[in-house]
């Protein structure tokens, strides 16, 4: 063997067979755990042919489920953007009593089982719940209707953006904001010109994760949905429903739609990451390095 490649190999001293074994294991694992189920979803979905596949997707109840799911995500992601930025800003740029408690609270939805989250809302807003009699008397329906679905989805997805932003903003510190302040910028100017450009990629990444979860959430939504077809059935619930009714091909067709939404999300994330490692404006370069690390 020529000297040059051998010289390069110094960094990895493992024998070739071991490297091949490890790479093989990794590829095998990814294939078995990630690729195979994905392929299975699409083969099952197309088991009864492309016409049946298409029919399952354009059927009115499936269409209603798709619109509901997109609508819930469209509502939850912007709200969580505002909440996430506000929370991260408060926690990382300011000192105040109870800060540690606030950080813990922000993470609470991660540690609570989604089913429990759904049940909490039923216990509060349900007919037999805390506010139930008051709501019934005023003819306001929260759970088993759209407001309930939006509320639990907000609950479950609320930590995603804040959790992306907080470590980054902590690492960045407050020097740049302080510099802007000494140069005479007001609060909004500091936010739009200094803070937001520094966090935009993390923000986008957080929004993508938040969106994926908002569209895919099953447990919490299942508890508060009421499963009214064409009304309160989201896509993940529709998949279960079809499956329970022995319509596997249709169930997998709708599941493949969710898988496509997930793949689309991954592609957007990938593009975002590629943009982030190729900075255009020199001024933002140092901060971007911070994210990549």
């Amino acid at each position: 063997m020529p000297a040059h490649p051998r010289h390069r190999r110094v960094a990895t001293t493992e024998p070739a067979w071991l490297r091949r074994l490890l790479i093989g294991l990794a590829i095998g694992f990814v294939g078995l755990v990630l690729v195979l189920p994905l392929v299975a979803v699409f083969t099952e979905a197309l088991r009864k042919g492309i016409d049946a596949y298409w029919a399952a997707l354009v059927e009115p109840e499936a269409r209603a489920a798709l619109w509901l799911t997109l609508g819930v995500a469209l509502f939850c992601v912007p709200l969580n953007l505002i909440f996430g930025i506000a929370a991260a800003w408060a926690v990382t740029k300011h000192e105040f009593p109870g800060k540690a408690a606030l950080i813990t609270l922000i993470e609470l939805p991660f540690s609570v089982s989604p089913v429990v989250a759904g049940l909490i809302y039923v216990l509060v807003f349900g007919a037999q719940g805390l506010l139930g009699p008051w709501l019934v008397a005023r003819d306001v329906q929260i759970v088993f209707a759209l407001p309930g679905i939006v509320l639990v989805t907000l609950f479950v997805t609320s930590p995603f953006i804040a959790r992306e932003l907080i470590p980054l903003m902590q690492a960045q510190g407050t020097e740049e904001e302080q510099a802007a302040l000494t140069l005479g910028a007001n609060g909004w100017q500091i936010f739009w010109r200094v803070t937001l450009p520094n966090i935009r990629w993390a923000l986008l990444y957080g929004a993508i994760l938040c969106n994926a979860r908002a569209m895919g959430e099953f447990g919490a939504v299942s508890v508060v949905s009421g499963h009214i077809r064409g009304q309160t059935n989201t896509l993940p619930l529709h998949v279960e429903l079809l499956y329970n009714e022995y319509q596997s091909a249709a169930a997998f067709a709708v599941a493949s739609l969710l898988a496509l939404l997930a793949l689309f999300t991954l592609i957007v994330k990938h593009l975002a990451e590629r943009l982030q490692v190729r900075p255009r404006a020199p001024a933002t370069a140092p901060n971007i390095g911070g994210i990549a690390a």
């Binding site: 039923v122 807003f125 349900g126 007919a127 037999q128 719940g129 139930g132 019934v136 329906q141 759970v143 088993f144 009421g226 499963h227 009214i228 077809r229 064409g230 009304q231 429903l241 329970n244 009714e245």
Partner: peptide, 18 residues
């Protein structure tokens, strides 16, 4: 309008306000 689910879970939901 139709809502379908496990019979007992459905009863629970109706009691809770469905």
């Amino acid at each position: 309008e139709q809502s379908h689910g496990g019979s007992s879970a459905q009863a629970r939901a109706v009691a809770d306000g469905l």
